[in-house]
Write a protein that binds this DNA or RNA. Structure first.
Lengths: 336, 336
DNA sequence: ATGAAAGCGCTAACAT
DNA sequence: ATGTTAGCGCTTTCAT
């Protein structure tokens, strides 16, 4: 593979001149420019970015670390990030943590080694101080989706509390009195906040005593298992709030296996919509976060910091969620 | 950020000794090793990978270029690639082409600049010789999912012809006589091959005259629009083969809007399954390709080449597809 | 308008 | 067992 030296030799100039042509800075006479460009074309020269990056300490690369790229929510976030980053000449590298702090640390270290210019991080846990490594290194970063201790960073997340509150309120207005929430791990602020919004709505209605809270993981299995538990409880809830899309799927499967119809026998509402690209007939009543927007906005914050155009104070953006009422929720079955 | 020099100074040794400790090669006395490790810990030193990469011309990074990471099929492939790559100390960077050759070239060039060690490429077109840049550069690469001209590379893809053949055969056995296929662009071998398998099955049954072929894109809109067209055609097909998951969704939406029931009024079969993680009740009769396997296998081929352990001849792996018969297909409505 | 020297962080090759 | 030198590919700085 040719390097800048080979191009220079072929064009009969110094490497420096080639560099000037490539980067379009400094004075180059039209004649030499053409000779250099010809040489570049003939050799199919592609500059090695490692050299300049080593010098300039900029790689024009952003790191996106999410829990699992297999979840359509995160792929949509990723597209938002990628599109925004590309528009500014940046590219992204993605890592999956599978909610494991160890994997997260592996990725952060790897990406730090690679000298990425900034991070977009969905912390694997809201407890442990995932971001401290980054903070100590002084690498700009933005926290997505979840809260972590501290304030010296930008962050973007959906309004979990309000979303859960509105979803619950919707159920109460339909007449439900016994409502259950199935949520994620306690060390995820999203799991926690959604329970908080849920409880707030119930308290306001004076129904705190009739609530059920199931803590699990943000996956289908949690939805399935805890729905079965909820169905066996007394009094049996007439509505379930699934704290994310995967839990909702698990819940629906458990209800189907139990021979129950939604919403006739039991109502289901969920956090996070499923992408319209993969749903035939949107069915769930949801609190929908605009994932693409979240990715785009977070990237904007990061790029502003990198450009030195960000304000001194860190920004915390809480995106509104949209409540979409569809077919999975209805009035409770009339008790006999 | 500290560099190897800072660590060396703090430990009272030469940079070379620090390097030996980091990489665990060469002789280092237990005493100095400990001093060096202490210095590394105190300074929270993370080696800059750019230096070694510049020298060794290896970045331990693989590039994965797909059409759209938003399609669950590709995210599953991506996980297969990532898991395999990580297990061998490699990491991946992902790019989306959106089926555009221009975007694809942008990404290839960018990744080439970054000196990735190898490529996993889903070509944006089967016509233009997407891979020639890579071949000329001598960078190892594997072609995924689609065929492109030439043979000097490894490739992995699903058995599109057989999958479409079996799917069509299934419809014919149910008694369907008028069948339509809605597929992707003509310059995608997958679109092409699925039509070939479809036609082969019809020919064998002597029903070639009763077929309809709609060429579009591998997206929902194509499924929707051409299903409408098919419904208006005479004779109206009693079954539709959707050549991928997104088309199938569009088809279902069009049928729903037309007030038709599946499979009572019309049957639908599709290529590519939807991940079970995001489906409540698997409904489609499909030819399922194991996406994860595809990613894993392709990565294995690539890693073998990088390790110099691959055979001289290039390998072309055609993965079997699994026909899963579910609820979307049934006998044609009895004609009056 | 063009070129030469030096150095970004690291390590292979060669001392000692 | 440890250290020195040189160079990977490029560009900033300082000539000319």
């Amino acid at each position: 593979m040719p390097n800048i030296h080979d191009v220079a030799k072929r064009a009969g100039v110094a490497p420096m001149t080639v560099s000037r042509v490539i980067n379009n800075n400094g004075y180059v006479s039209e004649k030499t420019r053409q000779r250099v460009e010809a040489a570049i074309a003939e050799l199919e020269y592609i500059p090695n970015a490692l050299g300049p990056s080593l010098r300039s300490k900029r790689t024009m690369t952003l790191a996106l670390v999410v829990s699992d790229i297999t979840n359509p929510f995160w792929t949509t976030v990723a597209r938002g990030v990628e599109d925004k980053a590309n528009a500014h000449g940046y590219h992204i590298i993605i890592g999956n943590t599978d909610e494991s702090l160890a994997k997260q640390d592996d990725y952060l270290t790897f990406m730090l080694r690679k000298q990425v210019d900034g991070f977009l991080l969905v912390p694997a846990s809201s407890r442990s101080n995932s971001s401290s490594i980054l903070r100590r290194r002084g690498v700009p970063f933005v926290i997505l989706d979840r809260q972590v201790p501290g304030h010296e960073f930008d962050s973007v997340r959906g309004d979990s509390i309000r979303g859960a509150y509105e979803l619950t309120k919707h159920l109460l207005e339909l007449g439900h009195q016994h409502v259950a929430i199935i949520t994620g791990r306690q060390d995820h602020s999203t799991a926690y906040d959604r329970v908080a919004g849920f409880q707030q709505a119930l308290e306001e209605a004076g129904l705190s005593a009739y609530q059920q809270v199931y803590w699990g993981e943000f996956n289908q299995n949690t939805g399935y298992e805890f729905t079965r538990q909820a169905l066996n409880s007394t009094p049996r809830p007439t509505a379930i709030l699934a704290a994310n899309n995967f839990i909702a799927i698990g819940t629906m499967r458990a209800l189907r296996d139990a021979g129950l119809s939604v919403p006739e026998d039991i109502s289901v509402v969920a956090f996070d919509d499923l992408p319209t690209a993969i749903t035939i007939d949107p069915f769930f009543t949801v609190a929908s976060q605009s994932a693409y927007e979240m990715g785009k906005l977070a990237t904007e914050l990061l790029l502003a910091r990198l450009a030195g155009e960000a304000p001194d104070e860190y920004r915390e953006i809480i995106l509104p969620v949209e409540i979409i009422i569809r077919k999975s929720s209805g009035p409770p079955p009339t008790s006999k």
